[in-house]
Structure formats: structure tokens, C-alpha cells
Design a binder for these strands. Structure first.
Lengths: 342, 342
DNA sequence: CTGTTAGCGCGTTCAC
DNA sequence: GTGAACGCGCTAACAG
């Protein structure tokens, strides 16, 4: 089965290849009649233009790329939908790539840019610190969503945009809320991450809140989950270990809702009532927080707004209507049924 | 910023382009010294080969594609991880594409195949009935995961493989289990789908089980969620409507775990105890089923085995060691805390 | 071991 | 309005 190419279509229609090309790409300079004839043959033969060849030649491809770190992470699902909608509205093409945990997302972007004709890139998740040089190499506007600007050094602030909540501040807010309820021994479920990331910011918010309110930091209450903060199992296992360690605590603050749901289950299994015996708080404001039993107190990130704003910003930079910006959205502390006064 | 190409690298190294190509692609016939020199220049210049051009020429690209219908669906996350591992082990490249609900996955595959040099395709989710002709057009081995063979007509059985559970049978099993617990008025949360899909099979299993046990089908107990069966909100809203309708029922069977979690929440809000007042059963055996409160009784699909077997099969067909097969895995009825005898 | 060269399939001039 | 010819960046023959 030799692949059918544009030449073959041209031959069958008795026209030149360029005419076929014009028909495919909706060019204006073409006789409607010939176009119709060509399109008929194309449909009939099931011909599909080779995208690689097109990318090689095309100069005007309007394409946006979204690079998602950990696409299996449900957190990004609603954001991606917003991106799809925005991109479609503007008649751009969209390519979604997921980036492995061990890959450098900017490297992947670099590669992708060679392959497609990208006009803009939006990153979701991933590490926070990238060399400005590398980002500059991308040559197209770049927006980081859900990653704040506070980790960027001043030099690189103008090389890319960020749209996010202030993870440190919001995390601080949540812990302060727990403290306000009278909790003094607040455990935290976090991840032992060595790279600068939102995880570290959230931990810092926790530490600062304790400090501000004169509570001492007990290392035994800082619990590191095994690698991934978006699995129920990790929240469950870590909480179980915490309980069994005999350490005293009256609240658990989890840096993701998914971890918190695992924590709820572990507490329930141990016969510990939430919120009467122990309060549980999450972070992210994912859909699950609203539907678990009890409903989770969580720090809701305005995901839709973040992605919407991220796209607006990206397009306005593409259209040279704006320079790079660093936008911070406020998070919302949603009080559920999982926390109460002590 | 003119893009830097292989010619430029060759010029800077004072060698021919093919030598550079050989260096990049780890060919054997090359002097280690020259290779080292070339690689150094490549690193220095930040040169990245253009993938489109490569795809255009390459004859041997070992690449597998996974097309996922609704990649935002957490159901496929663990399966994709298995695929990644298997593909990597065999030194193939992997391209993951997610397919919109309104797109035809086979069409997308057709397009992708023109662009990349695919050696095999694995589909996850999506509609069940595809014309054998179209699949044949793909020219490479195709495996459908999580979609059964029962919807394929005999003619096309040899054109592709399927690896799945028998959705109708397993669904039947679950409903029979509920009936065995003494339930007579069993509501079902399903999706009003017009295309042949697992959804219809699960509904059929429900209907058949009722019939077999002499229970009459009450249309009022068949509830259709609004479009998507993998959102908590839909399970919640539909269950809420069911409760408020005043219809009597003692069990709810949800055709996905995600719907079931939403149902749990709605019942809890209405002051209905699970499982004492109403039993709830899910389907899929996702991680959440094990961590919600109460734990969900569900029909667990062996997702890891399905994807592992799917990949094994795909590769053995690629290597001509096997023809197309239709493999059915047994599901496992996992009894949680959400169902009890009436 | 290395350089030269011919296309891969297509979009884009530039003549007609 | 249309066709011929060129070349995008690269790999794979082939010749040295």
C-alpha cells in the first residue's frame, strides 16, 4: 500500500500539485469548480496531507502548545479544557504534550518548537526555576500557569509570564486559619522535593504561620509522602504512619486535596472522627473536595481564571499588545466540614 | 534568529552533513573522535534536529501511538503509565494523543500515521464500532483496550485486537449481586449514549439481570447523567434528582466509580445512610473507590493487566509472532462498605 | 570511516 | 486561475 500523496491527487484530477495545495488550504485564487472536483477526489481516496512535510514548509501555522507536567494529574483537567476552548476560539491549532517527571519541560518545548511552528507556549505545573537563557531560546511567548513569579530572579522576569496564586501566602492563610481554630499541633503532609516548586512554597507558608503565632515547629509533624502528592494511597499511607507513630496532633494539613482524601480514609479506619477528633485541611480546591465525606476544607485555586487569564495574556503577547506580566490570583479558603474549633 | 540546521553544524565542524547525522543517530560507522567533536558543537549551539524533517525521511522510526479518548479521565492514568513502561523497555518511541469527544479516534490515528512513522496503535476508550475498512487503512497493528470484541462484526475481527473485560457480563454480575442482597428496586446511573459503547453494554447487563430474576424494569429508575460519566458533579446532581423525585429504591448502581462517589455525597446530604438505608455500587475499580467513605463496592477492571496484555499483544503482532486476538479479562467484584443485605 | 547527493511530501514563488 | 520548479531539514544510499 504505497502512501497516497498530493502528486497522486493532482494526477488523478489532471491538475498541478499547487492547485491541489490551494484547494486543501482554502486559498482564494482557485476556481470553485476545480476545487470541488479536487475535494471530491480527496475524500474518495482518503488522502491525508502529511503533516511533517507541511510543518517543514509552512510559514504561518498558527499553533499553541500546552506542556503539562504529569498529565495524569486530575488537577489540570479543567484547565486544559479552558485552554482548548480559548485556542479554538482564536482559530489556532493546539498541541498538548505531557512531560514526564524526569524531563525538563523547557527542553521538551524546545524540541517541539523545532517540529511544529509554535506561536506560543503555556506550561502547567512542573518546576519553577528555569534559566532565562533557555526560555529566551524558545523565541515565542511563554506563560507559566500555576507557577508563581516569586521564584524567578529579576533578570528573567521579562522573558516570560506567570499566572498563579501566591502559594506561600495562601498556604500561610490556611495554617493560620487552623491555628485560629485553636489547633496547636498541626501535622503537614508534604513532599520531599529538592527542586524549587510549589511544594516548597506551601511548606514555607506552614512554617511561617507557626512561627508567627509562636508555635514551635515539630519535625515529627512534618511528614513527607513518597514521591507523588496526587495519589490517594500516599495520603493514606503517610497518615496511617503518622497515627501509628503515636505522635499527638489535632489537625492535619495536606498540601493537596488528593492527599487529604487519603488522610480522611486513614483517620476513619483508625476510628478517629473528622472533624471532632482531628481536623483535616487540603489544598487546591479540586472537585473531589466538594464531594468527599466530610467535605474538605481547602484552599481553592481559581483554576479556570488562571488558565483563562493565562491564555488571554499569551495571545496578547503574541499580538504584541502587551509585554510579559506576572499575575497573582487570590486563592479562596473554602471551609468544608473537615475542620472545627478545638 | 535564523534557526540553526544540520548544515550549519556540519560547516562549523568542517564535516559533511551525513557525518553529523550519523553522530546524532548513534550510527556505528563513525570515528569516536569526530563524533565527540560534533556532539560538543551541537551542545554548544543548542542545536535540535527538526523532527518534521526526520519523520519525512526516516524509514525505521520505531514509534507507538496511544490514542486516549478523554485524557482528562483519571481512569486511564494508570494504564498510560504501563504503556509508557512497556514501550520504553522495547526501545520504541511513544506518542500520546488525546482525542476529543467529538473526534473520531480512527481518523485522528490516520492523520497521525501520516505524520509519524507509526508501527502500532493502541486505543483507549472511545466508541466501539469502527468500520473495518478504515482500520485496515491504518496499515499497522491496532489494539483496542477496554473495548470488547462483542461489538465487532465477524468480518472485522481479524483486522484488530481487543483487550477488555466483558462489560455486559460484569455489569450483569454486579446487579445480580445486588439482587442477591435482596434489593428489588435498583436504580441505575448511566449515560444516554447513542453510539455503541461500554455504557450501553453495562446498561444491558443491568436490564438482563433484572429480567433473569423476574424483576420488572422501571424506567423511572434508569437515570441518565448529563453527558459525562466521569464527573462527581453529575453523579451528585442525578442522584439528588432521583431522591427528590420521590421514587422508591434501595440501591443505586452507578456505571462508574466517579458517579458513585457523587451519589454517596448526595445521599449523605439527604440524610440517607449508606449502606443501611441505601446500597451504592460503582464500576471500574478506580483508586478512589478504595479511599472514599464508605469504601465503594465496585466492579474492578484489571487495568494494569489489560494495558500490559494490550502492549504485549501489539508488539507480538508487530513482530509477526501472532495474529489479531480478542482477549477478555475477568473483572473482580470488590465488596466494599457501601452495600449490604436488605 | 567520511562526503556527496537524491529525494521524503508539501507550500510557495514565479511565470504563464 | 493554474502549473513547473525549487527547497524546507533531514536521512540513506552510494561512492570514495
Amino acid at each position: 500500500m504505497s502512501e497516497i500523496t498530493i502528486v497522486e491527487i493532482a494526477r488523478r484530477c489532471g491538475v498541478g500539485v499547487s492547485t491541489v495545495s490551494r484547494a486543501i488550504n482554502n486559498h482564494s485564487d482557485i476556481n470553485p469548480e476545480t476545487k470541488k472536483r479536487i475535494m471530491a477526489v480527496i475524500k474518495e481516496t482518503g488522502y491525508i496531507p502529511n503533516n511533517s512535510a507541511r510543518n517543514l514548509k509552512r510559514t504561518d501555522a498558527k499553533c499553541i502548545a500546552v506542556l503539562v507536567k504529569g498529565i495524569t494529574n486530575p488537577f489540570f483537567a479543567p484547565m486544559i479544557e479552558v485552554v482548548e476552548k480559548e485556542v479554538e476560539e482564536r482559530k489556532y491549532a493546539l498541541v498538548i504534550r505531557h512531560v514526564e517527571a524526569y524531563e525538563d519541560e523547557v527542553d521538551v518545548a524546545l524540541e517541539l518548537e523545532k517540529e511544529k511552528r509554535l506561536r506560543g507556549i503555556i506550561f502547567m505545573g512542573g518546576s519553577a526555576r528555569h534559566s532565562a537563557d533557555k526560555i529566551k531560546q524558545l523565541n515565542v511567548p511563554v506563560v507559566f500557569a500555576t507557577i508563581g513569579s516569586d521564584i524567578a530572579d529579576d533578570l528573567s522576569r521579562n522573558e516570560y509570564s506567570t499566572v498563579s496564586v501566591d502559594d506561600e501566602k495562601e498556604s500561610f492563610k490556611m495554617v493560620e486559619y487552623l491555628i485560629g481554630l485553636g489547633h496547636k499541633r498541626i501535622a503537614i503532609l508534604t513532599e520531599g522535593s529538592d527542586t524549587p516548586s510549589i511544594v516548597q512554597l506551601r511548606l514555607k507558608g506552614y512554617l511561617d504561620a507557626l512561627k508567627k503565632h509562636g508555635l514551635e515547629v515539630d519535625e515529627n509533624l512534618i511528614r513527607y509522602v513518597d514521591r507523588r502528592i496526587y495519589t490517594f494511597g500516599n495520603g493514606y499511607a503517610t497518615t496511617k504512619a503518622l497515627i501509628e507513630s503515636g505522635e499527638k496532633f489535632t489537625a492535619i494539613y495536606c498540601i493537596s486535596d488528593v492527599l487529604a482524601v487519603g488522610a480522611l480514609r486513614a483517620l476513619s479506619d483508625a476510628g478517629i472522627n473528622v472533624p471532632n477528633d482531628v481536623s483535616v485541611a487540603g489544598y487546591d480546591g479540586q472537585e473531589i473536595a466538594e464531594y468527599c465525606v466530610p467535605r474538605l476544607t481547602t484552599l481553592k485555586q481559581p483554576m479556570m481564571e488562571i488558565s483563562k487569564k493565562g491564555m488571554d495574556l499569551l495571545f496578547s503577547i503574541i499580538d504584541k499588545e502587551s509585554g510579559h506580566k506576572h499575575i497573582v490570583f487570590p486563592g479562596e479558603l473554602v471551609v468544608g466540614e473537615s475542620t472545627r474549633e478545638i
